[in-house]
Simulated scan of single mutants.
Amino acid sequence: MSLSLFDDPPQPAQPPEVLEPGAMVLRGFALEKAADLLQAVQQVTTQAPFRHLITPGGLRMSVAMTNCGRLGWVSDRSGYRYDPLDPDSGQPWPAMPPLLRQLAFDAAQAAGFPGFAPDACLINRYAPGTRLSLHQDRDEGNYAHPIVSVSLGIPAVFLWGGAQRSDKARRIALMHGDVVVWGGPARLRFHGVLPLPEAQHPLTGAHRINLTFRKAS
């Protein structure tokens, strides 16, 4: 297979970067399939376009998002929740593309969480200057399953915190193709993303695309 000028060259396998028990970074894990993953995301967004949700407090989220899978995460004045219907269209969310589902399964298994079967994939689009404040993923209700987070496009600095919001957070550089997986004793750790710097990537332009896989039911 020949590489174009815009392809990322093959990278040697790297050992997982353990953040703490139950949490690790898989460097370059999604790199080989990145272009196909982004094409699958584009197919999803033709059916369920990116939008800026409103928080229960009435603030507009800076990160644009959409969903695929049986359930989608939504936010509005009534709160945060998972819903089988896209509130913008009233239709079910697009089905999760098999390539995305398989990547989530493989990454979870590589991190020590076999049999992961996500039913929700949150697709976030970050532009330069956007950020995600420290938070926990608590809306799933069942914390026995891991979170799988895939970074595509321009770099980001991921914040890995502790059990309390006030705990000091580590700063972890995430590059195109990196995957973070956390579960077990690390499942409810606070995490976030610092404001993105100005940057360009051949596949995503001035954006970072983040895929977050969860088992919400």
Rank of each mutant, 00 (worst) to 15 (best):
S4N: 13
S4G: 14
S4A: 11
S4T: 15
L5T: 12
L5W: 11
D8S: 15
D8E: 12
P9C: 10
Q14F: 08
P16Y: 09
E20D: 03
G22S: 05
L26R: 07
A30E: 01
A30D: 02
A30R: 05
L31A: 07
E32L: 09
E32A: 13
K33W: 03
A34L: 10
D36V: 14
L37T: 09
V41Y: 04
V44P: 01
T45F: 12
T45N: 03
T46W: 03
F50G: 01
R51G: 03
L53N: 05
L53D: 05
I54L: 08
P56L: 03
R60S: 07
R60T: 12
V63E: 02
A64C: 10
M65D: 00
N67T: 14
G69P: 00
G69R: 07
G69F: 10
R70K: 08
L71D: 00
L71W: 00
S75N: 08
S75R: 04
D76G: 07
D76L: 06
Y80T: 01
Y80L: 02
D88S: 09
Q91H: 12
Q91K: 11
W93Q: 02
P94K: 02
M96F: 09
P97Y: 12
P98E: 07
P98K: 12
L99K: 13
L99V: 14
L99P: 01
L103I: 14
A104M: 06
A104V: 11
F105S: 06
D106A: 15
A108D: 04
A108L: 04
G112M: 04
F113C: 07
P114N: 02
G115F: 02
G115L: 08
F116A: 06
P118R: 07
D119P: 02
D119C: 08
C121R: 05
L122T: 12
I123Q: 02
I123M: 10
N124Y: 06
G129R: 09
L134R: 02
D137Q: 07
D137N: 11
D137A: 10
N142W: 04
N142E: 06
H145W: 14
I147F: 12
I147S: 06
G153A: 13
A156H: 09
G161S: 12
A163N: 07
Q164T: 11
S166F: 09
D167A: 15
R171S: 11
A173Q: 13
L174A: 05
M175R: 14
H176D: 08
V179Y: 03
V180E: 00
W182Q: 01
A186E: 04
R187K: 12
R187I: 04
F190H: 05
F190A: 02
L194D: 06
P195E: 05
P197F: 15
A199E: 06
P202R: 14
L203R: 15
H207R: 14
I209T: 15
N210Y: 10
N210R: 14
L211V: 15
T212I: 07
A216M: 07
S217T: 13
